[in-house]
Design a protein around this nucleic acid. Sequence first.
DNA 1: GCACTGACTCCCA
DNA 2: ATGGGAGCCAGTG
Length: 112
Amino acid sequence: MSVGEAQQAIWDIVKKIPFGRVVSYGRVAYFAGYPRHARMVGRALREAPDHLQLPWHRVVNAKGKISFPAGSERASLQKGKLQSEGVTILSGRIDLERYAWLGPLDSELWQM
DNA sequence: GCACTGACTCCCA
DNA sequence: ATGGGAGCCAGTG
């Protein structure tokens, strides 16, 4: 198998991010069991095969901004996907107070 | 092993 | 609000 366990753990977490919510790279790393590996999350998402259909657009940086150069094709794609989920972006920033996903436990609690 | 890179983060001016 | 700089860590050559 060529898929590393860290990479797999990251994909599993990203898969759990609910519609209309966002999380930072650092938190995804933390939830996946790899604190301080925010950069690895970016790499894992870049290498994620399309068929996994991960909601990668729900991952933004710690400041609530999209981590692609403003105006780039990938940046506007992510921006569009988020807005189509109802996530408002004002002056390039997302209100994390309002849209941040609190983690795997948060989802489970809401389902109860 | 060393240097450099990056879908990052924190801190400070 | 904004930009610079250091710290971070796995991949790559």
